[in-house]
């Protein structure tokens, strides 16, 4: 195995990992603030992917431009889902809240997946643009532009999200609510609206990730579970509370997967994340998700 192959594989891992990080950001912020686990997060990613696929195929819209539709679109879907479903769960105490949100997400998974199969068929869809195969080459290492853009967009999102959470009133309100919603309410923060905005923000982030997933690979109705699981692994790796930390954990997971593919063959790359996940869970069965968002 040449050194180039190793570097190339690890680099690819890091680039894919930036998608894991993006996928996890939305899940993490919703979990951290609302204390609900939306297992249909992967299905929101799937919807985002189809959004940009159809925008490209029907409207001839460049996938990056389609974000202007997909991200607000998923934000609206997020608003509707929270308003119609998850807001009803938030009233419960912590344990019931999380359990019921899990079950609702579960039902939602089923609905969205089946609906997508009916509307879009079970075919794998991908977006092929004029620059799909474009790549830079540095010292014999290929850097495909489309994949590289995932990393760049990821970094932009991390910086923007961090700025939003640290510098704006709404961001501070979200962090305060994550830490202690009772006190946040007493400080005059409208908790319900904070929850609503946060959930929609998580959905919008899922939409963004969905576009990149489709552009770099493909989308089909059943990709959701796999992405929810990836996002969960990253959240468990990173813990809650740090935006850059979550993104970085995603990149690390991607690198770890590639490294294990190099060592044991491609068939086992999916397994390494799950094994890490199970090890962390068994070491720290409780209190995994402490902390608020920053």
């Amino acid at each position: 195995m040449s050194i180039e192959t190793i570097v190339q594989t690890l680099l690819f891992g890091a680039l894919i990992g930036s998608l894991y990080g993006l996928a996890a950001l939305g899940l993490s912020i919703v979990f951290g603030v609302l204390k609900i686990l939306n297992v249909a997060h992967g299905e929101l990613i799937m919807l985002g992917g189809y959004g940009s696929f159809w925008a490209f195929n029907l409207l001839g819209l460049d996938p990056y431009l389609s974000l202007l539709i997909v991200v607000p679109g998923l934000f609206l879907i997020g608003l509707a889902l929270h308003f119609g479903l998850f807001a009803r769960v938030v009233r419960f105490d912590e344990e019931d809240r999380i359990k019921n949100s899990l079950l609702i997400g579960f039902g939602l998974t089923l609905i969205l997946q089946t609906l997508a199969t009916h509307l879009f068929t079970a075919d794998e869809r991908s977006i092929t643009t004029s620059y799909s195969t474009a790549a830079w080459e540095i010292l014999g290492i290929r850097l495909p532009l489309v994949r590289f853009s995932g990393l760049i967009i990821g970094i932009i999102v991390v910086v923007a999200l961090r700025w939003f959470l640290r510098r704006t009133y709404w961001g501070k309100a979200i962090r305060a609510t994550a830490e202690d919603w009772r006190t946040a309410a007493l400080a005059g923060i409208d908790i319900r609206r904070t929850y609503l905005v946060t959930f929609a923000l998580g959905a919008a982030l899922a939409g963004l990730a969905g576009m990149l997933v489709t552009l770099q690979g493909s989308v089909s109705p059943n990709i959701g579970l796999q992405w929810t699981l990836k996002a969960l692994i990253v959240v468990v790796l990173a813990g809650l509370g740090s935006v850059p930390g979550t993104f970085l954990a995603g990149v690390l997971l991607g690198v770890a997967e590639s490294a294990s593919a190099l060592a044991f063959g491609g068939a086992y790359r999916e397994l390494v994340g799950i094994v890490i996940f199970l090890i962390i869970l068994s070491i720290r069965p409780q209190g995994l998700f402490g902390g608020s968002h920053a």
């Binding site: 479903l85 019921n100 079950l103 609702i104 039902g107 609905i111 089946t114």
Partner: peptide
């Protein structure tokens, strides 16, 4: 095909809530 899953998904959520 599979439309029962949508019906069941909705039923399921309604029942949980």
């Amino acid at each position: 095909v599979n439309i029962h899953l949508i019906i069941f998904g909705i039923l399921f959520i309604a029942i949980v809530l």
